[in-house]
Structure formats: structure tokens, C-alpha cells
């Protein structure tokens, strides 16, 4: 079965969704990602969904679940590159992904995770805290 590749980039994991996700793929991603966070000790997860054109309620819930799982494993999730149509669909479905951080593109998402980004002060503070704990 197809798998979505998970790349390690510094202390973060980068997941780029370039194909249309179907349900089993999304579930496999959740498993792979949680395992990878533990093995690499990543502090942040960047999910790039700029290639995703179609979402349904399941996919929206999946993003929420992945974020919740990552948070439990002490990694921040940032969803980046959402298309306008996808955003509208999710809002109309009533899924505003309140537990997930968002950014416009991978660059800004990475800045949000590494914390050197001016306006993302909230995110950077969280990250520094978790960094301290991680080293200890």
C-alpha cells in the first residue's frame, strides 16, 4: 500500500501530502507519524496539504486527531498551505480545527515551529518550554 513520506528536517517532521488522501492512507499516516515522533524525538510536525484538493469530514477529523496525538507526544502540529476551497469546505462542515496551528506556507510553518518568527510569539514560547524538557 502507498505511504505518505515523512521527512525529518532538523527537529521537525515534514509531511507533504501530494496525492488525494483516501481514508486508509490517512489512518496509515497517523500510525506512521506517531511512531516517527517517538523514534526521532521531534518537537514539531509540519503537514503540508497544498496538494490536497478534496476534503471530507473524515479527513478534517483526521487532521484534528493527528494534531491531538502529536500534542500528546509533545510535538506541535502546524498545517500549512491549505487551499481556499479546502478551507471553505472545512468551515462549512463545521470543522475549524481549533487545536491545530496553521500557516500559509512551509517557510512560515517552519518559522512557527522553530520560533524565530516575530508574530508567532505564542508558538515560540511553547516550543522553548518543550525544548527544555526534551533535553533533560
Amino acid at each position: 500500500m502507498d505511504r505518505i513520506p515523512i521527512l525529518k528536517l532538523g527537529r521537525a517532521l515534514l509531511v507533504t501530502v501530494q496525492v488525494d488522501m483516501h481514508d486508509r492512507l490517512a489512518m496509515a499516516l497517523e500510525e506512521d507519524l506517531s511512531a516517527k515522533i517517538v523514534t526521532t524525538g521531534a518537537r514539531g510536525v509540519l503537514i503540508d496539504i497544498s496538494g490536497l484538493e478534496i476534503v471530507d469530514s473524515f479527513m478534517g477529523r483526521m487532521l484534528d486527531t493527528i494534531a491531538a496525538v502529536s500534542r500528546l507526544l509533545d510535538a506541535d502540529t502546524v498545517v500549512v498551505g491549505m487551499r481556499p476551497a479546502v478551507a471553505i469546505t472545512l468551515v462549512e462542515l463545521g470543522l475549524s480545527l481549533n487545536g491545530v496551528k496553521t500557516a500559509l506556507d512551509v517557510d512560515r510553518g517552519m518559522a512557527l515551529i522553530t520560533g524565530d518568527y516575530g508574530h508567532a510569539s505564542e508558538g515560540s514560547e511553547d516550543l522553548e518550554d518543550s525544548d527544555d524538557r526534551g533535553e533533560g
Binding site: 481556499p84 478551507a87 472545512l90 500557516a103 500559509l104 510553518g109
Partner: peptide, 9 residues
């Protein structure tokens, strides 16, 4: 909410 999903405040 839609703008936030795109990453804009």
C-alpha cells in the same frame, strides 16, 4: 475561521 485555516489571523 476559514482565514485562520489558511494561516492568516
Amino acid at each position: 475561521a476559514a482565514a485562520r485555516l489558511m494561516g492568516a489571523d
